[in-house]
Amino acid sequence: MEKISYAFADGFVIAKRNVIKIKRVPEVLVSVLISPIIFVLLFAYVFGSSINIPGGSYREFLISGIFAMTLIFGAVLTGAGLADDMQKGIIDRFRSLPMSRSAVVFGRTASDVIYNVISLIIMTLTGLIVGWRIHNGIGKALLGFGLLLLFAYAFSWIMAYVGLMVPSVEVINNVSFMVIFPLTFIANTFVPSDNLPTPLRIFAEWNPVSAITQAARELFGNIPPGTPDPTVWPLQNAVSYTLIWVVIIIAIFAPLAVRKYKQANTKS
């Protein structure tokens, strides 16, 4: 019992430290603020000019996809933050203290939720400016935002694990982009997945990124009228399928990341 309360208390102390760092190194925050704006404008005006969604607005269709993609890219910060920590002498200090062994990773994934919230607010405002609207009422929209944040939180655990495995911060960008690009593009994020070649279509249909995008579109009321109902279970039950992934990802990657942190040795 004492152990669990220390795990929370220590995780909170580390999260607080990370938040102080956000204030002291605002460069990271600037990229968190600016890249969502760029993504929204770029996709809305470049793709939006030539893609037509029958019966609906492409920009409305697009925004949920951008939300999902940007939040997933944001998870790279979690990995980079941990990789950076592991190279610093402060980790030896942490490892010699009677603190919870999970605090550094828990604290990091918790503090990075702040980035996601900021990023989501910026994207929402930019989206509203370019013509995106919520059609299903504020209650469902809040559920949509909540689900997006939950999915981003789960994904940050994957990146936390990757961040603890890579030898340096530079490596993590390359490694993660190789995974994140296909994951966010072979999906229904930017175009409907129905017209993809069969193997890609199947991947897209079962891709959790498609599910979170579909779920957000449903909750925001951004499914263009006249769109045929999805034919596969994951997209028919997008919210449940997303939640299943959230649970699976955290159940697998949280213990893996904590174990990796315990084993990690900053000294050769």
Binding site: R17, R24, K88, G89, I91, D92, R93, S96
Partner: peptide, 16 residues
């Protein structure tokens, strides 16, 4: 709980 360590590389968080 019973030790204090000060290493070769100052283990302080430079942003704090």
């Amino acid at each position: 709980k019973r030790i204090g360590l000060s290493g070769q590389y100052a283990a302080v968080d430079e942003h704090l």
